[in-house]
Design a protein around this nucleic acid. Structure first.
Lengths: 219, 219, 219, 219
DNA sequence: CATGAATGAGGGTTCATTCAT
DNA sequence: GATGAATGAACCCTCATTCAT
């Protein structure tokens, strides 16, 4: 059998062809996050992906369509990972909460996808349909999961009763803030380094104590 | 009755000239927040301010200069209000913290300036000098004030000891998140209304309990 | 008689008012020569004349009209001076020629009006009517005068017979070139100084010998 | 007969790409000469070259860069032709002078490049660097060549001794004047036709006699 | 008369999109 | 499929002209 696949790292033609869309959206994502959608030129995206400008149009109908694809792809892994969580520590809400917060950062916030919250926040008004998609696919499931955690904790008596609607938002805020910070001021200004793990520990610590049931109060 | 002021609402030339810069930055701010810097056309800004495109250039050298002016002007009131706070409830850290959080929202987050965090986060990488200015004039003083509050509380024994560096960030996050939310998903998507006051109360409640000194622990 | 005219150098209001148009055209001329018509802004002209931009429109209908006025005014003294020449040395063509060449430079080329040839050459195609006016008022009379000198010289036997049509052109060329040079390369580049008097002497010398009648040839 | 060159006149993409810059500079040159740099719109240049406005920016960074390219390209052939001259009639200064004057007109002044002196004179102050380039690449070599001719003539005793510095300028003036005239008044005004050959003959005749050594004078 | 704030048409430049190769 | 030259609409910015003061 002549001409078997070479052992080198260079991908075969077929592999590249199939991987192209992801290479393009990856390049687009990093630039959209860095400069914003409008300020990013297709030239730059193509250059960063190592293709020519025209090639983008073989895979995406327009710049807008590329944006949608970027978000769609960035969203998928979050959903998959998210779903696993609730089943693992189903009977330990404190552990679940901890896993949620640290897992969000480890699997999403700290990765290349961590710029999506900044991007989506910046562009929500310019792309209402995409924002709506993101809201339904990411934000609302995320909040639902958080609400589930809170309610299980309350039911088990390890959390005090809180307003779940507002609290789910509040508990997401420091995570989002960390992600936004990392892709804004942390990049462009000389800021003293903020250790994410330390930040998350402080946060989890604060929340846990803040949710501690008051002795004597009935849940 | 010769030469009394005319009853018409149209201001004199002189008065307009003095008021113009603020009218223009106000229009620019709202559009920059809405669509982002790059996606905002000077035509739109001029139209929203009720002037022609060329007029912008009587007051600002370029679109970039206008952006800088928008931030500079948006920042001033925050600084002034901020300075007052620390002196008022100097001996009541809990009250100070409450005033800080609710005051931030009332005087800044809920006003027309409330879009600045979104704008500045989106554009920080495109305008490093402006971001640096904002960091030094707004973020760092704000954090310093929060740190002061925390340290006074710890000294008085009403707060437990925490990592102030991370905690100041964490405590700002829900405020910023509220402001960002209001100028992104809340505008473009049909989301159930979130009452800021309720949000802030939940947040303050959570934080206060989270900061409660553990009985028996030494401050 | 109270309020008599003060003895100071400051012109009275009335005098300034009458002198205004010339101050404006003088400023315009120098800038038109320096940068060309299209590249000169009315702002600059007004600033150089020490008035506001709007004032220009009190005296001239448009930028084009100002150009016409600049040329018209620049042309008048040339005509007046020119006419005197022919009557003075009427019976000495060599002296007339010398006076013509040196006089042109002294009274026109070396003065503030010396930029007009450059300006008119540059803009002739953009202002055909003005060019036509200049041709008829300046160039053709100048050539006629030169032709007259040549013909008198030929008649008197001090010049050999030449093609007057082409020779008049040729004899003007070095003068014009000197004026053009002075307002182009001499200003912007580090060129070794060229002494106009030396230049004119060389030129007159060359021409005089070039026009010397060949002995034995009949005029 | 497969795949022969198609009979159509439309050149292939590749060929156009290589020829484009010259097509563009040719169009730009003719318009710059006609209306001046500032008054020429890029639209017009593109239209005259048969391309769209954006295409100009594929080849030139800016309007200024286009101007520089126009001059640079216009200068090259002059330099090449110029260099040949001195070697041909090395032992006949009169013939060399004649070839210089008539050659300048035939190879430069009368061609499409003949507008460059007008353009460069008009814009020297607006483009000092380009003027400097032109001075060093064209004017000074041209003057040096002329000086060489004069000095050889003096050495051989066929020219009288003259001030070479001023005379080189003076001898170029009628050529430049002819070129300037052709692109200014001759175009816009109804002027009686001036035959360049006649003009040049008159000029050469005048100069030759003007340079004739005076009998009895020692060279 | 004189000013200079305001206008808006128009120019230089950019860049998403197309299409011949 | 992939390229990159070409397009032209749209943007930022300028500046001749106007007009209320």
């Amino acid at each position: 059998m002549a001409k078997s696949a070479p052992a080198t790292a260079r991908p075969t033609r077929r592999r590249r062809k199939e991987a192209r869309p992801q290479e393009l959206t990856a390049a687009a994502l990093s630039l959209f996050v860095e400069k914003g959608f409008a300020a990013t030129r297709l030239d730059e995206i193509a250059a960063r992906a190592g293709v020519s400008k025209g090639t983008l149009y073989l895979y995406f109908d327009s710049k807008d369509a590329l944006f949608l694809a970027v978000i769609r792809e960035g969203v998928l892994p979050v959903l998959e990972e998210g779903r696993k969580l609730l089943t693992i520590y189903a009977d330990d809400p404190v552990r679940m909460l901890r896993e949620y917060l640290f897992g969000w950062w480890a699997l999403f916030g700290s990765t290349e996808l961590g710029g999506i919250p900044k991007l989506m926040t910046s562009e929500a008004q310019n792309f209402p349909e995409v924002a709506d998609y993101y809201l339904k696919q990411v934000i609302q499931p995320g909040k639902a999961m958080m609400r589930e955690i809170l309610e299980r904790g309350v039911a088990k008596g390890v959390f005090r009763r809180v307003n779940t609607e507002t609290t789910t938002h509040i508990l997401m805020a420091p995570l989002l803030h960390l992600a936004l910070w990392r892709h804004s001021f942390a990049v462009c200004c000389q800021v003293p380094d903020m250790d994410p793990q330390l930040y998350l520990e402080s946060f989890f610590d604060l929340v846990l104590k803040g949710l501690n049931p008051v002795p004597g109060e009935v849940a």
